[in-house]
């Protein structure tokens, strides 16, 4: 599998809702969502890591749920609300998960971080008080090759324990 997927289908005009804005784009419906976000919309915070849904670097939120954009045909995202890492903060105010990653120092090279943060946001949206085991299970589809797993768990626990997040941390 390559970072860029070829398609033979004709281009069709569609609109993609990303980070609260509609983007009219002409594209092949079976192209990956990752490819469209990065190469058409310039949203490069979403990363290519493997192209087969194994590493989680490409995760984005689709209607609040983390999905692997490298194996999601863009056609499946049309008509739904997509949030990429660039759209998570409210202006200058970081999402609590973003802030916790900074406070804990939960990254090294940082390449996995956008996918990690969005996977964590997705987890906390459905379970605002996850146990350590639940965090590990929910995050197991995301790889940090620098090996920063323990601090990532710590950052998520920090958010889960904060009172402000008691009623859910959805973006």
């Amino acid at each position: 599998m390559s970072p860029e997927q070829a398609s033979t289908l004709p281009r069709a005009p569609v609109s993609l809702r990303v980070n609260g804005a509609d983007h009219p784009i002409s594209l092949e419906r079976d192209r990956s969502l990752l490819n469209v976000l990065r190469e058409e919309l310039g949203l490069t915070g979403t990363k290519y890591g493997c192209g087969e849904g194994e590493c989680g670097a490409c995760k984005v939120l689709v209607d609040g749920v983390a999905v692997r954009s490298c194996i999601t045909p863009v056609g499946e995202a049309i008509g739904r609300s997509i949030t990429t890492i660039e759209g998570l903060a409210h202006g200058d105010r970081l999402h609590p998960v973003q802030q916790a990653f900074i406070d804990v120092g939960a990254f090294q090279c940082g390449f996995c971080t956008p996918g990690m943060i969005l996977a964590a946001v997705s987890l906390l949206a459905r379970n605002s008080r996850p146990t350590e085991g639940e965090i590990r299970a929910a995050m197991d589809g995301n790889i940090c090759r620098c090996g920063g797993y323990l601090r990532i768990v710590e950052a998520i626990q920090k958010v889960a324990q904060s009172p402000s997040l008691a009623d859910g941390g959805t973006p």
Binding site: T44, L94, G110, I117
Partner: peptide, 27 residues
């Protein structure tokens, strides 16, 4: 000490080589 560039990492704005996209780019 806090790591430099942390905000860029968590907001996805840190530009890695694979993210660079100048005008006229060929793949």
């Amino acid at each position: 000490a806090q790591d430099l560039g942390s905000r860029e990492v968590v907001t996805g704005t840190r530009q890695y080589t694979s993210d660079l996209h100048p005008p006229g780019l060929l793949y």
